[in-house]
Design a protein around this nucleic acid. Sequence first.
RNA 1: GGCCCCGUAGCUCAGCGGAUAGAGCAGUAGCCUUCUAAGCUAUUGGUCGCAGGUUCGAUUCCUGCCGGGGUCACCA
Length: 587
Amino acid sequence: MNLFSDFEQRVRAALHTLFSEQGREVDAGLIDRVGVEPPRDRAHGDVSTNAALVLSKPLGLKPRELGVELGMILEKDEDVVAVEIAGPGFINLRLSDAFWARQLAAILTSGTAYGHSEVGAEKPVNVEYVSANPTGPMHVGHCRGAVVGDAIASLLAATGHAVTREYYINDAGGQVDVLARSAFLRYREALGEDIGEIPRGLYPGDYLKPVGEALKDEFGDKLLAQDESEWLPEVRDRAISAMMSMIRNDLADLGVSHDVFYSERSLRAEGHDRVAQAVQALRDRGLVYQGTLPPPKGQLPDDWEDREQTLFRSTEFGDDVDRPLLKSDGSYTYFASDIAYHYDKYLRGFRDMIDVLGADHGGYVKRMKAAVTAMSGGEAELEIRLCQLVKLFRAGEPVRMSKRSGDLVTLSEVVEEVGRDAVRFMMLFRKADAPLDFDFQTVTEQSKDNPVFYVQYAHARTASVRRQAKEEISDLDLRPTELAKADLTLLEDEGERGLIRLMADWPRLVQLSAEAQEPHRVAFYLYDLASAFHAHWNRGKDSPQLRFIKPEQRELTLARLALVSALGTVVRSGLEILGVQAPDEMH
RNA sequence: GGCCCCGUAGCUCAGCGGAUAGAGCAGUAGCCUUCUAAGCUAUUGGUCGCAGGUUCGAUUCCUGCCGGGGUCACCA
């Protein structure tokens, strides 16, 4: 449990005591609004509660009066050394050295599990991310969603959810047919034909050349004599699996892994047509009808035709218009398939689903949430996190990309140039719903200006101090469980105490980040923690008495090494969630 | 035009309904070869886009404007 929820319970217990003494009753809903938080300004104390502000009015008291009464009870807590009523009626508590020493020891005994919790109660959560079309290698545009989705999944796992990481393969629509035709062209090329320019509308990238070669090796020139209707399914299958193995490699380079790769095509397998089932489920609830849609306001598409179609009544669940389930040729729309896919998740037992999508899918959010609510009868809920675009820069200059020529910057190029850690950290060093500037130069600098370096260096520095300590003082037992036994109340410097308080905030931060599904908070926290640690280290320059290793003061050294080790542990724990390495030395 | 996201220091951005709104860069002023370095310390700078509303309390929640971006049946 994090220390703030711990004290929240203590405050509630104190309220209970107070009210039963006085024979008063307070609405439970109000008690729920009582919270315990770190004060914005640490000078105000260690923990702060708004209890008196929230409850004074219904009790007909002034906040400060109620604060004094409550404070008298809280003062009896053995971990509380001082109570102050401040500002409009905040109750600020200062906690004992022994309490903080216990927090520090807990980090050392828990290791990187420190900060993890069981609040998720093993509830199944399905997190879908990447789901890039299997028509080419991953480019940088995919990469933010991949990293963000992966980190959200890790956050949920760290807070005790049963997480399934999933990738939806769009292998059923028209564009995989285009892929097949593009690959077929490369096949003819492999057979020696001069194919000239790749026609518009086909995929021009060189990455299909090996697919053409492989087709030649497998089929010889046999396919040339066939109709497209004959060769297309064969070529398509092989092209898709080639693309997927390329994508899996790209993902592996980025350190992103999925538990399930779910094929859109498999939704329609003989015997259990999930699409038909999902549509039927909606029909059973009276949510499917034949009707016409109003034309979109503003710019009217050239080929707009007013016709009757099969519609899902998504407006009943907050969507702006109803959505078609069948195309004019009678086949299912992509949306219908996607409903089926989410219906399948529902049938697999997921009641909480999260989709991480690019911001260009923003228009898709309401209808998909509506569909999940509808087909599950309100039992399941879908949350959609949108990621804004990434703009690439090189030393401040924008990197030009042209989609038409296939001249996109691929994910593997970026990873190769700047490294997995830099890509991952920077993708998370900004709120997901804000656009991101990514500069190749900055993220590879070994300087304070590069946040990746700065945070990793903090970890390396803790390892370095431990190595140095062993060299300077023999027979030190630096195992965390041993360091936890040191006299940690010797850490009396304000810088040291500040670091302990910051570390003790980690469990709460993990929980809040997971609830908000905002992994960038972890990245910012790590940056702050690294910054505080570097600053404290630098104090040792002017004040040698603050240095970690004092050979003539063994007990103090052990306490400080405990502090340093704990700090390394928290940094590692955070980087683990972000999927970034925590190196023991920088090169 | 509808919908979604964004608007906070000169720049890039943090900020779960709480107290005097923070950080980095840039600017300014100093310091500097240290347990492991790729610098350190201090400091200037704000009508939180505008106007209302809810609240004991609003940068945060709601509504309406203004400005920027994305998106808009039958592609996926």
